[in-house]
Amino acid sequence: MMTPKRKHDFISVVIPCYNASRYIQDCLDGLAKQTYQQFEAIIVDDGSEDRSEETVKQWMKQRSPFFPIVYSKLPRNTGFAGALTVGYFLSAGEYIAVHDADDISHPERLEKQLSFLRQHPNIALVGTNYAAFPDGHFERQTPANWLAYGRDIRRVYAEGKHCICHGTIMFRGEVFDRLGGPTRRIHGAEDYEFIVKFLNVKLEIDNLPEILYYYRSHPKQRSRQFYQKGGG
């Protein structure tokens, strides 16, 4: 069976969502301000037990967004990698962007990442710099200082370290069609393994130095289970 043809210059923004009703409206508000408007949002509700679904539907009714929203509620919790992979399979875009449900994108995020990938056909995936902020205090931003750029990225991953913020990535959909999604074998390091999968088949990746993403720090965020830094 052939893979369906992906929509040219169209972006699928995949948002794994688990009990994110407190934050998902801010996430969607950020997408509604994007300067590049040829995209869809795919929200994969990973068996939430809160009002995430009602919150999204209420937001859609109030805002009537210009972009389509696909809301997929999974019958049970599959975990981060499972929710991402479902979103990737549902994606129609030539490009796939990841977005955590509790974070916010800069209005020019999608435009600048898409422009970079268009201008650099040798690059398969690009992340961005970001700033972390404590929940409820968006104005108190701390720029990230652990990312790497260009050729340094491959060296950092070869050392077993991490230098790309997963919530910021955009990659070519055809790579997912060839390589598949993140593993479910390594709980807490799915994002690391996904990047390594690109590097292992000699695909090039990079980061944009501009802050194009805002990472919310709060007690219930997933990354706090695994490490204490704003790189979830």
Rank of each mutant, 00 (worst) to 15 (best):
K57P: 00
F80S: 10
A81H: 04
S91L: 01
L90H: 06
G82E: 12
E54Y: 03
A81E: 10
K61G: 05
R76K: 15
G82L: 09
A83C: 02
S91P: 04
T85D: 13
F89S: 07
T85V: 01
G79A: 12
G93E: 02
Q62D: 11
G93I: 07
R76V: 15
G82P: 10
L84P: 03
Y88Q: 03
A92R: 04
T55C: 02
V56P: 01
Q58E: 10
L84M: 06
K57I: 10
G87Y: 13
Y71S: 10
A92I: 01
F80C: 08
I69C: 12
L90N: 02
T55Q: 08
Y71A: 07
Q58C: 11
A81R: 12
I69R: 08
P75K: 13
T55Y: 01
G93P: 03
K57D: 11
R76H: 15
T85R: 06
L74H: 13
K73R: 15
N77H: 15
L84C: 09
F89E: 11
F80I: 15
A92T: 08
G82Y: 15
F80Q: 14
S64C: 10
P75H: 12
Q58R: 08
Y88L: 06
K73H: 14
R63N: 12
M60Q: 14
K73S: 11
K57N: 05
P75W: 14
T78L: 15
S72L: 13
M60S: 07
A83L: 05
L84A: 03
P68V: 08
P65H: 05
Y88N: 03
R76E: 15
W59V: 10
V86P: 07
P65A: 00
F66M: 00
L84N: 04
E54P: 08
G93D: 04
R63P: 08
L74F: 11
R63A: 11
Q58S: 13
M60Y: 06
A83E: 04
P75A: 10
F80L: 15
V56W: 03
K73I: 09
P68Q: 10
V70A: 09
I69G: 00
V56C: 07
L90M: 01
S72G: 13
G79Q: 12
V86H: 03
M60W: 05
S72I: 15
W59R: 00
W59Y: 06
G79T: 12
Q62Y: 00
Y88T: 05
P68D: 09
E54S: 03
G87F: 11
P75F: 13
G93K: 06
S72E: 13
F66D: 00
N77V: 14
W59D: 13
P68M: 12
T78M: 14
P68H: 11
A83H: 04
L84T: 02
Q62W: 02
W59H: 01
L84V: 04
S91A: 07
T55P: 01
E54N: 00
G79W: 13
I69V: 14
R76G: 10
K73D: 05
K57C: 12
Y71G: 09
L90P: 02
S91N: 02
G82Q: 08
W59K: 03
